[in-house]
Design a binder for these strands. Structure first.
Lengths: 220, 220
DNA sequence: AAACTATCTGAACGGTCGTATAAATTGTCA
DNA sequence: TGACAATTTATACGACCGTTCAGATAGTTT
């Protein structure tokens, strides 16, 4: 088993294979996001990346491992933006309001999902997919949950009298609503009689909805 | 292509094959719900149903057609319960309150999802799966949307001043929250530090959350 | 009993799957 | 330049895929 293939060479130009590796991960990211893990074959990933079959195995390992790598590749950037938004609220003179917390948590993901970079958009769709699949979440949920827990603590400080258990559930429903804007575009567009647009168009309504929901729950 | 294999015989006891057909559909329902369309092979459905491979094709047709049949089999029962709950509210002397509407829409699905019958539980999980998948929703969304639209009209009457577009979005977020209790049990249990329990345990919190959200949106 | 039809069996078809690997290629360093 | 390691190619493996179908079986009708 080839565990770690990182090049030992000094010069950056040496990493000829690093570019191919990115192409493979990008292709896998796009296809997994669009069609799901089981519907995509390694051969199609290879074709999409413009490489031969063996290269995918060389850079990505097994199919499961390839999926995991794709999921882990961008998680730090998303977590960093969410943490930074939370820090910014804490640095303000007044303690953060509930609405600011909801906004701060939802906005980075929505921006990534609506951004110009198609790879980030694909990654956002992929997250929405696996969050709704109990098969994947156990192995990657730990990457996202710590930040969510930080927000949960901040919400508890903003609503000290709210029942903890219910507040936690309200946050998970908030996350589910957010993800649904990306994962369930067909259903949402159909029911709201809108042409399916960027998730960002629903941002204000989403925040109002979730804030109203959390507020109601925290008054239980 | 054998289009319609319904038996012409008079006596009901004749339908020996009808029982096998149900076993095949039940097995497909369980496996599709648990692992998704692409992860399940017809051979595994046959084994799960205790029949040979050819029988699945005989009663279910192609794999796509089998999926469609499974989805359509129970939709009328769910729609009927939702419509009946709405009618009951309309027959009352006072016009239905928003909270009653939310309750009436969510409860039938949550009850099916928590019920003793494992096939109904599987069906509930399957719905939650396909609602989050743009590949399936276009072909089956029409089965569920008409009832949702009836509820939307009732909500508009309960909140005449609410902006229509936003109210529709709020309803889709409500549906997403409801489905997430069934589809994302791992994520929800993880974030709320609860052992994953029946969706019914979250019912009160869910209704409070969604009602608060719709209320907030309709005051926009 | 014979004809008939619905149901089921068992096997095969051509393809695609994930994975592994020997050999060829490429670029770097001693 | 020759040794060396990283990368890529080409191919093979056994397993499983969805679909089809000729023939066996069984229940009903004439």
């Amino acid at each position: 088993m080839i565990e770690n293939a990182l090049p030992v060479q000094t010069d950056g130009r040496l990493l000829r294979g690093e570019a191919t590796r990115e192409r493979v991960l990008d292709a896998a990211e796009r296809l997994f996001a669009a069609e799901g893990f089981d519907a995509v074959s390694i051969r199609r990933i290879a074709a999409e990346a413009g490489v031969t079959l063996g290269v995918v195995g060389f850079h990505g390992g097994s199919k499961q491992n390839l999926m995991r790598t794709v999921l882990e590749r961008r998680v730090e950037a998303l977590n960093t933006r969410r943490r930074a938004a939370l820090e910014a609220l804490r640095d303000a003179k007044t303690p953060p309001a509930l609405g600011d917390l909801v906004d701060a948590y939802l906005t980075p993901y929505l921006e990534y999902a609506s951004q110009g970079d198609p790879q980030w958009r694909a990654y956002a769709r992929l997250i929405a997919r696996i969050a709704n699949d109990d098969r994947w979440y156990p192995s990657v949920g730990g990457l996202y949950d710590p930040v969510a827990r930080e927000y949960l603590r901040a919400m508890q400080q903003a609503r000290p009298d709210a029942p903890q258990q219910e507040l936690a559930t309200a946050l998970t429903l908030t996350v589910a609503s957010m993800l649904s804007l990306v994962a369930s575009r067909a259903r949402i567009a159909g029911l709201s009689n809108r042409a399916p647009g960027s998730p960002m168009e629903y941002r204000d309504t989403l925040i109002t909805f979730c804030l109203g929901g959390i507020d109601a729950v925290s008054r239980t």
